[in-house]
Design a protein around this nucleic acid. Structure first.
Length: 458
RNA sequence: GGCGGCGUGGCCGAGUGGUUCAGGCAAGGGCCUGCAAAGCCCUGUACGCGGGUUCGAUUCCCGCCGCCGCCUCCA
């Protein structure tokens, strides 16, 4: 079965056929860098990272654009409140987002274009819209005329007559539903020169301009959170279609991470920021937690569920450790591929992963190392696609190569040697004392047929 | 008011018109172990409520209840 994806625009699961064979182009709405990232922000990025990895696994050359919206009302307002330059405020939070994406194992995008760097392209797009009578100048503002596009509202399922743009109904609008492409500058605000005067971009314009700049007038996948369906993506689509661009061919939207049943948002004060999360678990465990549920299902965050996920990941990790160090990347099972092909069915994919882990453990228990290795290679192929490969460079414990780690290893090994001797001598009191001592130090000891094994526990 | 989503066993979380319907975590029993740990095996008999369609519905239809989201910045 070929990859199928749920397309918001058509409201059904469609076979994914890239516009250009052998390639896939993705535009992901990244952050408006007005604050610190929380796990909801990161969830979306993770979902699209898995999709991207799956496309790559299937031999496609993927171009991934993840934008940074570094100019908008909130950035200007918040920076002013903090008494900092708007551009410093934006840059600071852009870095926080980048760090969060990186620490959770998102592959870097092909490019992370910033809105402020693409004013030229925005001006050009506005001009095309004006030329086609889809936009008009009013004072120093430029508005998009919603009535110029007959199927306006079709992406989000809104009826045009019911639609309201959140923006204040400015005086210059011909129709209250029209939205702003370009805002005239107010004194003291950041501004760029245009044929219509000094100003700054409206919210939706930058994505249309940047997507088509890098991916062409038509590209394959446009992704973002469900809240972006309307008005952001509806308006992006409108302005690009009105300009004559084919624009996105598949619209994907990921669901929320909620807290106590409510959407995480700064205004509710219920965000779980990334640095805070990483005190509770390892980054790879957070990644596991966030990508296991289906991307279109809401995740109701809880510490307990996160801990369960971490436990589940450790099971996989433990199996690969048991199977030995020389586990190559094998092939993913057909059921795993079928699961991901079915609208990125990660829950089913994880089920296949765990079934394979069990089969592998069973083989190990039976002493069939050859078979176990085959399962391990298959497991590794799956976790590789999911970005969860414990043997990958990303997740190799960085500290394991440090001087401290070597010193620790030497000491633990010495104690374990002593314990092996004690056990051989049937001095179990001594053997257990050593184990207790290590346990108290946060080191878990396991006896295996090949001798003792130890890991540092949280 | 317009549009949309959700309610599954102790918990998380899939899924399907029908004897055996994921997977994980936790729990109990067993195997293994000097004892553990890890691993493996077994056990739980669930689908918000009320109708309807059907030989049969958790799965389809209708109504209801509850929760949530978008329509205002938002991943």
């Amino acid at each position: 079965m070929a990859l199928h994806l749920y397309d918001t625009a058509t409201r059904d699961v469609r076979e994914f056929r890239p516009a250009r064979s052998g390639t896939a182009s993705m535009y992901i709405c990244g952050a408006t860098v007005q604050g610190v990232p929380h796990i909801g922000h990161v969830r979306g990025a993770l979902n699209y990272d898995v999709l991207r990895r799956w496309l790559v696994h299937n031999g496609l050359d993927v171009l991934l654009v993840r934008n940074v919206t570094d100019i908008d009302d909130k950035i200007v307002t918040k920076a002013a409140d903090a008494g900092r330059p708007w551009w410093e405020w934006a840059a600071t939070h852009e870095r926080a987002f980048e760090d969060a994406f990186t620490v959770l194992g998102c592959l870097p995008p092909s490019i992370s274009p910033r809105a402020t760097g693409h004013v030229t392209q925005m001006v050009e797009l506005i001009q095309r819209l004006i030329d086609r009578d889809a936009a008009y100048v009013s004072g120093g503002d430029v508005y998009f005329s919603v009535t110029s596009l007959p199927d306006y509202g079709s992406l989000s399922g809104q009826r045009p007559d019911e639609v309201q743009q959140g923006e204040t109904a400015a005086d210059g609008k011909r129709d209250p539903r029209d939205f702003t492409l370009w805002k005239a500058a107010k004194p003291g605000e950041p501004a760029w020169p245009t044929p219509w005067g000094e100003g700054r971009p409206g919210w939706h314009l930058e994505c249309s301009a940047m997507a088509t700049t890098y991916l062409g007038s038509e590209f394959d996948i446009h992704g973002g959170g469900v809240d972006l369906v309307f008005p952001h993506h509806e308006n992006e689509r409108a302005q690009s279609h009105a300009a004559g661009d084919g624009f996105a061919r598949y619209w994907l939207h990921n669901a929320w991470v909620t807290l106590s049943g409510e959407k995480m948002s700064k205004s509710l004060g219920n965000i779980v920021a990334i640095p805070e999360m990483l005190r509770k678990c390892r980054p790879v465990e957070l990644r596991y937690y966030l990508i296991q549920p289906h991307y279109r299902s809401t995740i109701e965050y809880s510490d307990e569920a996160l801990a369960e996920a971490a436990q589940g990941y450790r099971r996989v990790e433990q199996f690969l450790r048991r199977a030995g160090g020389e586990v190559r990347l094998g092939e993913v099972p057909a059921e795993f591929a079928a699961a991901l092909d079915d609208d990125l069915g990660t829950p089913q994919a994880f089920a296949v992963l765990h079934n394979t882990v069990r089969d592998g453990n069973t083989a190990l228990d039976a002493g069939d190392d050859t078979k176990a290795l085959e399962f391990a290679e298959s497991v590794r192929a799956m976790v590789h696609v999911l970005g969860l490969d414990p043997l990958s460079k990303q997740w190799q414990d960085a500290a394991s190569h440090s001087g401290e780690a070597r010193a620790l290893g030497t000491l633990v090994d010495a104690l374990l040697s002593e314990r092996v001797q004690a056990r051989a001598d049937k001095d179990f009191t001594r053997a257990d004392a050593i184990r207790d001592q290590l346990t108290a130090a946060g080191i878990a000891v396991e006896d295996t047929p090949n001798g003792p094994s130890w890991t540092v526990r949280d």
